[in-house]
Structure formats: structure tokens, C-alpha cells
Amino acid sequence: MRRPELIAIGCSQGGFNALRILLGGLDRRLSQTLLVCCHTSGNVDSLCELLGNHSALPVMEARERQLATGGAVHIAPGGYHLLIENDRHFALSVDEQVCHSRPSIDVMFSSATDVYHSAMIGVILTGANRDGAEGLARIRQRGGIAVVQDPENADASAMPCAALDLAGADYCVALEQIAPLLNHLCLA
């Protein structure tokens, strides 16, 4: 198995708190690129700032045509799908919503797995719809690692449940255990 180069995280309802805890627990030595898709149609500036205060890694909005840098967290802008090109630059799209969402986790996961193949980890956190399930299934089919927050432990269980139903998971753990798990998978 290739060492992960990308961690892609999807969340919806209850996502801010979950991200705060997850990002807060990440090791500052991580060199992986992190992508976050959080269902929002608005500006993500304050989200980046607030999460940045809780994270050892810099948190920024993913900007069009910008290179996806390692050791940093890139948040999908509200109202746009976030995709990644083969040369690892970001691309945005205003194509139709997927699962009533733009940005959509499915779109981001699916695009990321085209580029990173098995060298990525997909993480599904709390949320009230089923976005991300298909994308996570794609990640697994390509040999990437799937992590799902334990639905029992999630603010909204629908999204983790849908992901487990469709894709299954390599790890299904409580929120507090996700960051240590990612640290282990990426640094071990």
C-alpha cells in the first residue's frame, strides 16, 4: 500500500465542532495535503479562521488554480464544487448540486481519487444527508483508506450511516479517535 498523500474530509450538519476536534488533534508534522468539504453556500473565511485557531496546520480556502500544498488544510469554498487536476492544482465548478449540496463531498472524493488513487484517506464525519457515500466507495475501490465517524458518536448519524451502508469502512471510530488514527496512518 502506498503511503497516503492526501486526506479528504467530508462533513455536514454538526461539522464545525467535529472539524474543530479532528483538526485540533492532528500532528503538526503531517506532510499530507488535507481537503475539507463542509456543506455551506456562504463564505468560508471565518470558518478557516476559527478552525485555524484550533489547528497546528494552516487552514485556508482552496483557491482556483492554486497548487494543493502539503501540510495544510484546504477548505472548499461555499457554493462551488472542489475538484483537483492531475497536476494537483485545484479546480472549481458550479455544476448542479449533488445530494442537494455544492460543494459536494462525492464530487471532491471522486475527483481526488482520480489523482491520488490508493494514496489517500477519505473521512466521513457527522451529517444529515447521504453525500460522500458514493465517493467513499470509489476511494475504497481504488484501494484508498476509508474512515467513518461512529454514527453513535455523531451529532447527525445519517451521513456516517449512509457511508457505512454503501462503502463500508476500514475504520469506524469515535470522533476523538480519528485524529490519532490519521496521525498514525500518515506518520507510522
Partner: peptide, 9 residues
């Protein structure tokens, strides 16, 4: 065209 979106469509 940028490939990622085109391929998706």
C-alpha cells in the same frame, strides 16, 4: 477545457 470537470461531465 480543464480536465477534471470535463471528465466528470
Amino acid at each position: 477545457y480543464a480536465p477534471a470537470s470535463l471528465t466528470r461531465r
